[in-house]
Design a protein around this nucleic acid. Structure first.
Lengths: 362, 362
DNA sequence: TACTTTTCTGCAAGCGCTTACAGAAACATA
DNA sequence: TATGTTTCTGTAAGCGCTTGCAGAAAAGTA
């Protein structure tokens, strides 16, 4: 099956290479820009201009081309576009794992925003082989993607060096305070934790248990700090016995709560650094034969979907995760347009969502 | 061997073109195949052969090239590769949403397997604008991806027609019985539900509540059928009052269980069609002041991570979700290699995971 | 009318790679 | 030595597109 037909084409005019071989197993007959050009009776450069919304195309011509495009169902080949033009309309997303509501919400925001910008999403999970960061980054930089989003990276330094050096656009989501020179979007963890703790205090609680997140993450540190600050501001002691270290997973909420509930002077409220751990807390409370919120108030952080679905609905600090994803994309696209724009770090506000898992101590 | 064909290179020896532009704003200095060729002193075609592991390259040459590649840190530009060679090494993944352990596990399997095959993952979520299916599919077909994976598609017909027509490779994951002509991987839902129900019966339960999944999904139908079959096989009546319709979400587990528990003759066990609903059931049971498993046994389906983390750990039917993802990728890659291979439909076995949420009725 | 400026459009040169083809080198056979 | 064979390597033709350049057409100005 040879498809050669080089310059041995003597018919002076437009070559008109027929493109529908018609017979035999045929892959998608890929309508190309040439087909559209022929259909519309213009050059393929003009078609390209129309497709890319460039100026200097007569309205008339533009319409002719548009019609040809819809008639033929033409979709530009991204690979070729990217190769020729330098933009791939792909954004890479580096993520540890999916499967949590937290990630799901962020990715959903990312995805939404990306789709309205006509971008595609290339997903990379870092639980794969550890040593691959460099490859990833290189692959991405080599034209695979126009920019990179990193959600909650644990050791971003590995990537960031390379990224910075090559001036490759990126944005961190739910970052962990890496100085000011990193474009990032996060939320006001400190504020959220402060507000939540304050709420409990104002409800009348004096002994408030706290279960931390993974303290290598800035978010976890900030939440702990917000909790402590609220206590101090209300002249309440910081009792180390009431602070249990966790890493954001449910079992630690459970065990942490059991520890707290076994204290001689047990707390009347427990504030977990995320909702998932709060669920663990709720289980533990119940298993101790206590009721929520009658005996113990429980408070979470994040406001994942499930938080409003459990019983009693969980009072929690909402982090606008979708919004974070959206905003990160917006920032990234800006940086793609102009890699030299000043580095921005945005922290979205959190909201205390009051449901039914807290009440004044009895 | 005496003459190097590299013209325009006056210094006879190894060219050693310094590659660090060093000055001025420089985009990633993209090492290309040409640079490697120069560095290794061969033609770029040879480099291409080495990179693609083609035969007919002298061992010697191969090594020289390899060295040059590592020395320069060359990474092939996928766009160009794809454009020239027809393969993009990208697989599209069509998904409704992420953020559930269920999806997370499948995607994780997909991702793992893809990464060992050196493929990239392009993510498309269908919660985006509804009418975009055609665009997606066209984009993908236009060379963006080599194949497509669809997880739990609700109305796949929309895509499948186009896909089939263009003979574009795809595989469904956790399909819903669309006849035999669709390549798919799922799990033995019927068997799993049968085994679980049988287990409860053998424990001594006679009244077993069942909460269904979304019945437009084959998986949900099969689970219900397995439940019924087990009852029948054990001469137990099928009591419609014990069957509550749900759609796989937690609140339905909760409300469903409340309904069941309010029955005059309430069940001694509740079997939810997935773990998430089982969590809802557990909450409801507790809120009715009953204990699990002492008063009511609870059984789930899927075995998501959380199932072993709740208290008491949930007895459930494990669906090998990671494995499903993996297998789907393997099948897809086969189909990419040979689109004409016969259609396969695989159902992976399920396993009853006995934990502590079930015991004989008291 | 002649000339300048402003749109519009086509030509052609790649983007970085794969691969058919042909030529060279190495080895084997007549 | 002449002539295959087989292995290896280079040349060149694109893949489908963007974009600089220049010429053509339209519009404005003198």
């Amino acid at each position: 099956m040879k498809k050669r037909m080089v310059q041995a084409n003597s018919n002076g005019g437009s070559a008109h290479s027929q493109s529908a071989p018609a017979g035999g197993p045929q892959l998608p007959s890929s309508v190309t820009i040439m087909d559209v050009a022929r259909e519309a009776g213009v050059s393929y450069a003009t078609v390209s201009r129309v497709v890319n919304n460039k100026e200097y195309v007569k309205q008339d011509t533009r319409e002719k081309v548009m019609q040809a495009i819809t008639r033929l169902g033409y979709v530009a080949n991204q690979q070729a576009r990217s190769l020729a033009g330098g933009k791939s309309y792909v954004v890479g997303l580096l993520v540890r794992d999916l499967g949590s509501s937290y990630m799901g919400a962020i990715v959903s925001g990312v995805d939404d925003e990306l789709s309205t910008a006509q971008y595609n999403l290339m997903l990379y999970t870092t639980h794969r082989r550890k040593t691959n960061e460099r490859i990833y980054v290189n692959t991405l930089i080599q034209g695979m993607a126009d920019g990179l989003l990193l959600i909650l990276p644990r050791n971003p330094e590995a990537y960031l060096d390379t990224l910075n050096q090559s001036r490759f656009p990126y944005v961190l989501i739910d970052h962990q305070g890496l100085g000011d020179q990193v474009p990032a979007v996060g939320s006001k963890n400190w504020d959220g934790a402060y507000a939540a703790t304050k709420y409990l205090i104002e409800l009348g609680h004096r002994r408030i248990g706290f279960i931390t997140g993974a303290l290598e993450l800035g978010a976890a540190i900030d939440r702990l700090a917000g909790y402590k600050a609220a206590l101090i501001d209300h002249q309440l002691p910081i009792d180390p016995a009431l602070i249990i270290e966790g890493t954001f997973f449910q079992p630690e909420g459970y065990s942490g709560a059991r520890t707290l509930l076994n204290l001689e002077q047990r707390p009347t409220a427990i504030f977990a650094s995320n909702d998932v751990m709060a669920f663990g807390v709720m289980e533990a409370v119940r298993d101790c034969g206590l009721r929520i919120p009658a005996d113990i108030s429980v408070l979470g952080f994040d406001d994942i979907d499930q938080a409003s679905h459990v019983y009693p609905p969980l009072t929690t600090v909402r982090q606008p995760m979708q919004e974070m994803g959206r905003l990160a994309v917006k920032m990234l696209l800006e940086r793609i347009k102009d890699p030299d724009r000043p580095v921005e770090r945005v922290e979205l506000p959190t909201t205390l969502i009051i449901r039914q898992s807290c009440q004044p101590p009895t």
